[in-house]
Design a protein around this nucleic acid. Structure first.
Length: 432
RNA sequence: UCCUCGGUAGCUCAAUCGGCAGAGCGGGUGGCUGUUAACCACUAGGUUCCAGGUUCGAGUCCUGGCCGAGGAGCCA
């Protein structure tokens, strides 16, 4: 007979049927005349059993030879059983060993972070890491569905760029034939051009920052989605950011419950998030933080302790607006009648996870943009095309960037951002 | 880049005042008719990160180096 190859996530639909499962040995146990195999195939974990009153059953010998992470194909009948994890198990009739794994280094007991990072290529198979990356895939799909559903056009901005978008000190330099090029830190400047061509756009890709930062919330290479909308104001863009976050939350909470359970994520703090999120200006935030005992003074950016304090004051994500112009990028539009602050917004996630979104309104006036470039000592020739946008039907416009890994860390309540991407690039680690 | 802590069996850790190198897990062997990180018995397994120094004697003390972790600044 022909055995039907099924994935473990679909196994409950095949109760009573003969099927084939292809996967890896997650764990095994035995008790006299009965043997248990926990098999994973990437979509789930299934318990399979071998039962025989004969001690010398050939399948028993095959079972005994299996080691953790050995690859195998099992065939048998699916049966509903309350005693099995997941409620279904496979009664093995036939088993094929594909390869015996020798000394798999990650045991079911505890390991240090350093050891696990060294074995990241195998750590991905572990239950919690697997769950986090399942949520990541869902998060990315939700982001795309959100923007596509609202008529945004996906614009792929370049990764190799001739100039800096923000500071030049944090750029990765590379050779571009006989000239220098830099790895992109953001697609924003290019998106300002595509927004003038398509009205509302987004880019979604990897970004690179050569910052020597060694914290739980920094990656050297990370993914960012950046919408940009022509004719939009700060107000418009904040609402867009709120809608995006709510859409993502809805998707992940409805479709990835099981993974959040595996991660022991208490979902109540996420479930109570509703529009509108609290909004405060930078001025108000500084006042609040001072009352809470922070040493912050006007004109300084928030540090990690300030972000933690903010999430102790509010139990929803918070939008902080109107930052001092001096601590923000050259392209930020100054507030009307208050030129020392800009129409920018940072969204701080709840539960102490800090900034997940940064954005705002961009300068659309030619003269002001030229003035700012000079003040920031940026080479005009590298920005000619960008300046050009202000000469041909310039309009107010706004956008933001959302960091995928930080958002995922918040959703999964993962302490360190290194677990939110399959192969993290960190300050002192580029292997594996 | 700065501050703090750490490096002992494949892994996670212990080793009192400087005095015989130890446990659990994993591996191996055997047992057990429903296990849930199964359990029980036995068993193999060591360049104590590297180089130098002090000492009768160093995993332990000193000097230098290498590697890692936690935190800070910067940022999404």
């Amino acid at each position: 007979m022909r055995w039907k190859w099924v994935y473990i996530e679909d196994v409950s639909r095949h109760a009573g049927e003969d099927v084939e499962v292809r996967g890896w040995l997650f764990n095994k146990r035995s008790s006299g005349k009965i043997r248990f195999l926990l098999i994973r195939d990437g979509t789930g974990v299934l318990q399979a059993t071998i039962f025989s009153p004969e001690k010398c059953h050939p399948l028993f010998a095959q079972f005994d030879a299996l080691t953790q992470e050995s690859s195998l194909i099992v065939r048998g009948r699916v049966r509903q059983d309350k005693r099995a994890p997941g409620g279904y198990e496979l009664e093995i009739a036939d088993m094929e060993t594909v390869q015996i794994a020798r000394d798999y280094p990650i045991s079911p007991k505890e390991h240090s972070t350093a050891f696990l990072m060294e074995h990241r290529h195998l750590w991905l198979r572990s239950r919690k890491q697997h769950a986090v990356l399942q949520v990541r895939a869902e998060l990315i799909r939700a982001i795309r569905d959100f923007f596509d559903g609202r008529g945004f056009r996906l614009m792929d901005t370049p990764i190799l760029t001739p100039s800096a978008c923000e500071g030049t000190t944090t750029l990765f330099e590379t050779q571009y034939f006989d000239q220098k090029a830099f790895l992109s830190q953001s697609g924003q400047l290019y998106n300002e051009a595509t927004a003038m061509a398509f009205g509302k756009v987004y880019c979604f890709g990897p970004t690179f920052r050569a910052e020597k930062s060694k914290t739980r919330r920094h990656l050297i290479e990370f993914w960012m989605v950046e919408p940009e909308v022509a004719f939009a104001s700060l107000e418009d863009i904040i609402e867009l950011a709120e809608d995006l976050v709510l859409f993502i939350l809805g998707r992940v909470l409805s479709r990835r419950r099981q993974e959040l359970d595996i991660l022991e994520r208490d979902t109540k703090p996420l479930e109570r998030i509703k529009k509108p999120f609290p909004r405060i200006t930078y001025d108000e935030a500084v006042q609040l933080l001072k009352q809470k005992g922070s040493a912050i003074t006007w004109g300084n950016d928030f540090g990690a302790p300030e972000e933690t304090m903010m999430s102790e004051i509010f139990d929803l994500p918070v939008c902080v607006t109107h930052f001092p112009a001096a601590i923000k990028a050259f392209y930020m539009q100054p507030a009307p009648e208050r030129p020392d602050v800009v129409l920018g917004v940072d969204m701080l996630a709840s539960e102490g996870f800090g900034e997940i979104i940064g954005g705002g309104q961009r300068i659309h006036d030619l003269g002001l943009l030229e003035k700012r470039l000079k003040e920031h000592n940026l080479p005009r020739q590298a920005y000619e095309w960008y300046i050009d946008l202000r000469q041909y039907g310039s309009v107010p416009h706004a956008g933001f960037g959302l960091g995928v890994e930080r958002t995922l860390a918040w959703l999964c309540r993962i302490k360190h951002i290194r677990e939110t991407i399959p192969f993290p690039r960190l300050l002192y680690r580029i292997y594996p």
